[in-house]
């Protein structure tokens, strides 16, 4: 992906080329800005005083710099409680996802003559990609299992992420079979081969499925809202849904919504939005080269 294009370097740039490059660079910078400016706008609002935000002075730089809204959030117990729920969910969910993913992908990566029932199992998992029970039966299933209101309702239904399983098994397939054969000669069992040979060789795809799992569990909000009994059990994104979306929508719907949206509310909302995306912003750039590779492998293998 990071390969340089040789032909542009070899040949002297013509005037038209120069124009193209300037335009292209400007265009791409604009695109990049479009993707990060909203966050900067949110950050600027969260760090500005109420008065300057109401006056519409704040765009990309805080005016009347203050960290009061962060101070307010810092002492808000519901924000930190839901943050705690989210952290617990991530820890449990990612562990379960990665473990399930590895033990499911490993046998499926074997060829049919090594593992005869492979085709049947593959169809079993593939069918779930074709047909989906839909919201109500899914909800009733979890309700019948008496999982409502427990953390397990948030981590068990997504325990086997099929997309990640496919990604992982494609990676396993790329590992030379000779390694396994040699280990079998030495008397190693399949569990040992999987954990001592295949997993250590798959760091890149392990990092990818970890990232996808973290992002999934951190960003899910809908299941929290319908599967938890009380708002005090909400994970962070469900909690943010109630304060950011529901309050803004009631405000938008009512006739004098302008007076209803108190501006301090707005700066506090923005500071919570910003706080909630810090973990993701810290993680994904470092895993960029892994998930790029993982994505390509998962969706476009030969």
């Amino acid at each position: 992906m990071a390969k340089k294009e040789p032909q542009t370097n070899k040949i002297k740039m013509s005037a038209a080329d120069k124009v193209f490059h300037v335009c292209n660079t400007v265009f791409l910078i604009l695109l990049a800005l479009i993707c990060i400016l909203p966050i900067i706008n949110i950050l600027a609002i969260s760090l500005s005083s109420n008065a300057s935000v109401t006056a519409g002075l704040v765009t990309l730089w805080p005016i009347d710099f203050t960290i009061n809204s962060y101070k307010y959030v810092a002492i808000r117990p519901d924000f930190w409680r839901s943050m705690g729920v989210s952290l617990l969910r991530c820890a449990l969910g990612v562990t379960i996802n990665v473990f399930m993913c590895v033990i499911t992908a490993y046998p499926l990566s074997k060829s049919t003559h090594r593992f005869k029932a492979r085709t049947a199992y593959a169809w079993f998992f593939f069918l779930t990609m074709l047909l989906n029970g839909g919201l109500i039966p899914w909800f009733m299933t979890i309700k019948s299992l008496k999982l409502l209101g427990t953390i397990w309702a948030l981590v068990l239904p997504g325990a086997v992420p099929v997309f990640s399983v496919v990604l992982m098994l494609n990676f396993f397939r790329g590992i030379p079979e000779e390694l396994e054969e040699a280990a079998v000669m030495d008397g190693a069992g399949q569990w040992t081969i999987m954990s001592k040979i295949y997993v250590p060789l798959s760091k890149a795809s392990m990092a990818t499925i970890c990232l996808f799992s973290i992002v999934y569990h951190w960003n899910s909000w809908f299941d929290g809202i319908i599967l938890m009994n009380r708002p005090t059990q909400y994970p962070l994104q469900s909690y943010l849904h109630t304060i950011v979306i529901q309050s803004s929508l009631t405000a938008v719907n009512s006739i004098d919504w302008e007076t209803l949206v108190s501006v301090s509310d707005r700066t506090i909302k923005c500071s919570q939005i910003f706080l909630s995306i810090i973990p993701i912003m810290l993680v994904y750039p470092f895993l960029q080269k892994y998930f790029v590779k993982g994505m390509v492998l998962g969706s476009v293998k030969g």
């Binding site: 960003n219 950011v244 909302k269």
Partner: peptide, 30 residues
């Protein structure tokens, strides 16, 4: 041609994908 510039642009344009719809919608509503 500059791979550094390309990677920077890529990191920036991947960002919205990693935000939840709650957050992105919050930003949009604002």
């Amino acid at each position: 041609r500059s791979s550094k510039f390309r990677r920077t642009v890529q990191t920036a344009i991947y960002l919205p994908y990693f935000m939840s719809w709650v957050i992105f919608s919050g930003v949009l509503l604002d």
